[in-house]
């Protein structure tokens, strides 16, 4: 497995930021009520993650240790603001429905954690790939949770009605308790997948 493939496997499964490292819970729970919101947030966060990883990696030798965190936040905030402007200009509906969670991407733990743990210690290309992998992992987790929640609470996916009208709409799925429950279940499933692959590796010897 090449290092790039390993990085993708890391971001999507082994160290999935939402489902394994349990980072970025707040936006996950908040925007996963609708699949469109989830995909929008996932892509926005991925864009910010890649850009900030690249810049921080490029500047890693120049940023003194004592102002490390302040510098990271400045860079991340810059990119989040840029993404915010772009969304407001070219996707105002998405911008409205994500609302204040776009500025909250600045303090999304995933982005700061990867900046601190990876981008500040690795080269630009590797950091970019890590950003992409982690962002994809985040988006994937969001999609899983949002798909279940939207389907069960409104019977739709991407606002297209999927379930017949007769199917009961489980309101609680669209509210915070339902969010926690679905997230918990998805995390458990991911854990089972990882354990099975580990056991398969061990038994295969």
């Amino acid at each position: 497995m090449t290092q790039t493939m390993r990085q993708f496997k890391n971001g999507l499964v082994d160290q999935n930021p939402t489902l394994v490292l349990l980072l970025g819970m707040c936006p996950t729970l908040a925007v996963s009520t609708s699949l469109t919101n989830a995909v929008g947030m996932g892509l926005a966060a991925t864009a910010v993650l890649i850009c900030s990883n690249v810049v921080i990696s490029a500047l890693r030798k120049l940023i003194p240790d004592k102002i490390r965190i302040a510098a990271f936040v400045v860079v991340i905030a810059g990119f989040v603001t840029a993404v915010d402007y772009l969304l407001q200009a070219f996707a105002p509906a998405l911008s409205d429905s994500l609302g204040m969670f776009i500025p909250l991407i600045v303090v999304n733990c995933i982005i700061l954690a990867r900046a601190e743990a990876f981008a500040s210690k690795n080269g630009v290309v590797r950091s970019a790939i890590d950003g992409l992998a982690m962002g994809m992992g985040f988006t994937m987790a969001l999609i899983f949770v949002a798909a279940v929640r939207e389907l069960l609470s409104a019977g739709t996916l991407f606002e297209f009605t999927i379930l017949p009208d007769a199917f009961p709409k489980i309101d609680i799925m669209g509210q915070p308790p339902g969010g926690f429950i679905v997230l918990g279940v998805v995390i458990a499933v991911m854990q089972a997948v990882r354990n099975r692959s580990k056991a398969k590796n061990a038994a295969g010897l």
Binding site: K198, A199, N201, A202, A203, G204, L205
Partner: peptide
């Protein structure tokens, strides 16, 4: 023991 090893070192 095979199943207990997290690194797959026993067979």
């Amino acid at each position: 023991c095979v199943r207990a090893c997290p690194f797959g070192a026993i067979s």
